Simulated assay, not measured.
Amino acid sequence: MLESLLWGGVAAASLLVGAALAVLRRWSDVVLGSVLAFGAGALIASIAFELAEEGLSVGGAIPVAIGLALGAVAFFGADRLVRRIGARGRGGAAGLPLAVGSLLDGVPEQAVLGIGIAAGDGVSAALVVAIVVSNLPEAIGSSADMLRAGSSRAHVLLLWSAVAVACMAATLGGTLAADAASPEVKAGIDGFAAGALLVMLIDAMVPEAREKAKDWAGLATVLGFAIGAGLSLLG
């Protein structure tokens, strides 16, 4: 339990760090886009070499496939709902959809982290790196939007603190679920996280990285993938 809380806190803290960085100074789009692209590459490697591979080895193809479909549909529906809320929002609501999106993809990511710890596989360095690097630009961008819309610094930091606590709790929840779940359920959770992340990558993360970083996005993505794949293989 303590190990889950520790590593869940390390991964989730990147959200609060991103918010603090936005409060301290303004970052260029090229920097944000490059970091976002790097995180996307690391997440792709994590999906391929951690989530999908682990799910197939633990519970087989059918639970993973079901989880993939459920995760994709769940994130797609939740993301559309968040966008509608953001479209109707005014003033301080700016940036809120991105914050909620971070919660939606952060919970399954960190639940999988907790499952790996419970299974005795140790901490997935590739997954931790992917979570941290993808969290930072999301938190910075959302916080910057909210600050420009008139939200106070305290409000922004409190919001991201709440999101970080929820994600950290998901790591503990993943550990508890893994202790009681069958191999098929564990494989389904791996698939669910992979499906949700794939939709998030294609619909939000990659397009935003390309828009902000321009020609640097592709190189940063490949670098992130290479490092993520290397960490997965070393782990």
Rank of each mutant, 00 (worst) to 15 (best):
P137F: 12
G120L: 06
G224E: 05
V64W: 00
K212L: 14
L103H: 03
L113K: 02
G191C: 09
A78Y: 02
G218S: 15
I131C: 05
A130N: 06
A194N: 00
I44R: 01
K212W: 13
C167H: 06
G141W: 10
V129A: 12
S124T: 05
A229V: 02
A65W: 08
S152Q: 09
L234W: 14
E53W: 11
V35I: 15
M168Y: 11
L233C: 03
L68Q: 07
A217N: 12
S142V: 08
F192Y: 13
G59T: 07
M146Q: 12
F75Y: 15
V128G: 01
I85G: 13
G191I: 06
S57P: 08
G39W: 00
L70N: 06
G41A: 02
F76G: 03
E109Q: 09
D121S: 15
I131S: 07
G114S: 08
I189K: 03
G59F: 07
A42Q: 04
I47H: 01
R84T: 13
V10W: 03
A37H: 03
A45P: 00
S46T: 15
S161Q: 03
G89K: 01
F49A: 08
A74L: 09
E3T: 14
G141A: 08
A94Y: 08
L147A: 06
V17E: 06
G18D: 03
R148M: 06
R153P: 00
S34N: 06
I115T: 06
V163Y: 10
S182W: 05
R148T: 12
S161I: 05
I131Y: 10
P207L: 00
A149Y: 09
A48K: 03
C167K: 12
A45V: 01
L43G: 02
I115A: 09
G195W: 00
V10C: 06
L6V: 15
S46F: 03
A11R: 01
G71H: 01
D203L: 08
E109A: 02
A187T: 05
L103M: 10
G174L: 07
T221K: 07
A164Q: 02
I202H: 10
A196S: 15
G150A: 03
L113F: 07
S28P: 03
I227Q: 07
S46G: 05
R148Y: 11
A229E: 07
L36R: 09
F49K: 04
W27Q: 13
G92F: 14
A180P: 11
T221L: 15
L51K: 04
A220E: 05
A42F: 02
V128Q: 01
L233H: 14
P207Y: 00
F225E: 09
G174F: 01
A164C: 02
R25H: 10
L43S: 10
S46E: 08
A99M: 14
P137C: 11
I202E: 12
A61Y: 05
S182M: 09
L32D: 04
R90M: 12
I227S: 10
A78E: 04
A37R: 04
A72L: 13
L201Y: 01
W7V: 04
L158H: 09
V165C: 09
A20V: 11
S102T: 14
A22W: 05
